[in-house]
Design a protein around this nucleic acid. Structure first.
Lengths: 162, 162
DNA sequence: TCGCTTTAGTTGTCGCTTCAACTAAAGCGT
DNA sequence: ACGCTTTAGTTGAAGCGACAACTAAAGCGA
């Protein structure tokens, strides 16, 4: 393991990426918690469900689309169900599986939270970037995700096949 | 709050950024935990201390350089001190302040962990990017951090003043 | 149809982060 | 010298996520 150290430019990029991954979750959680009583991950789960056919997805599919482990999702969906934002239904075709269904309350919650969240994302992320940088970020994101999620378990749905 | 929704390109960039912030911490933590018994944040704290004069920094300065709240850092440094990787010393010039000092064990730990960590960062991040993309990522990172850390409390040390 | 393996999901425990509350010292105005 | 405010840091409780262990159903080979 001979240390092939980072050069100046690589270190600069790496430090910024680390800082972003530390700071971004807090920025998202703070706004959503204050305005909608949701963490960003909870919001994301509800938002993904809201776009699914019948507002319903299998736990495994939902986990993939939210970049989460099944364990994490299971805990979160249980809490969301306790708040009546989501309902869990046994899947008729496969008795092992569970369907997560967005309730009317859940729909209302995510619809109510969306505008504030979008404007927060604009204010803290997208408005800082030029159109060219947004395109570059898509490319960079695909490149990184091809390593971070090499098997495409999580991000296969929107990333180009390699 | 009229919802100015994201267009396709903005949504693509945003989804990728969210996925990265969800997946990257796990990739870093898993390798460092397995090979060195450290979380990435703990490693980062030790690494920052290792580069400071006398391997020592005030808690507040250390918090800034690690993108952390003082609360989070206080807990982490206490745990590191219990493992004898760090020693806390009262600051002679300011009786309110605490200096965190990297012990010899801490130094050995971070030096031992660095090569594996760097090669993990290469394998999962930097090797996926071209030289141009690394430069683009620095620019994008600066742009994002100017919003995420608008007051420059955390990242002022390596980001250009606006 | 029997048993083995894989898949789907849940649960309990533990560790880490956040939030609120707190102590204590420094700075500062008068 | 006196309070008031700010700064530095710690602490305890609560909540979330990771890991390991588990149940149960499906797939599949002989």
């Amino acid at each position: 393991m001979e240390p092939n150290w980072l050069d100046e430019s690589e270190m600069a990029a790496w430090l910024r990426l680390v800082a972003i991954t530390e700071l971004l979750p807090g920025v998202l959680d703070t706004q959503l918690r204050r305005d909608a009583g949701l963490t960003h991950f909870e919001y994301f789960v509800l938002a993904v469900l809201s776009e699914a056919p019948d507002r319903m997805l299998r736990m495994t599919a939902l986990a993939q689309r939210t970049n989460a482990t099944l364990t994490r999702l299971s805990h979160v969906v249980r809490r969301l169900e306790e708040r009546s934002l989501v309902k869990r239904l046994p899947c008729p075709e496969d008795a092992r599986a569970t369907n997560a269904h967005l309730s009317d309350d859940g729909w209302a919650t995510v619809v109510g939270a969306a505008p504030g969240h979008v404007s927060n994302v604009r204010a803290n992320v997208l408005d800082a970037l030029s159109v060219r940088q947004v395109r570059q970020l898509v490319e960079i994101g695909d490149a990184l995700l091809s390593r971070l999620d090499a098997q495409g378990k999580m991000t296969a749905l929107y990333r180009p096949g390699e």
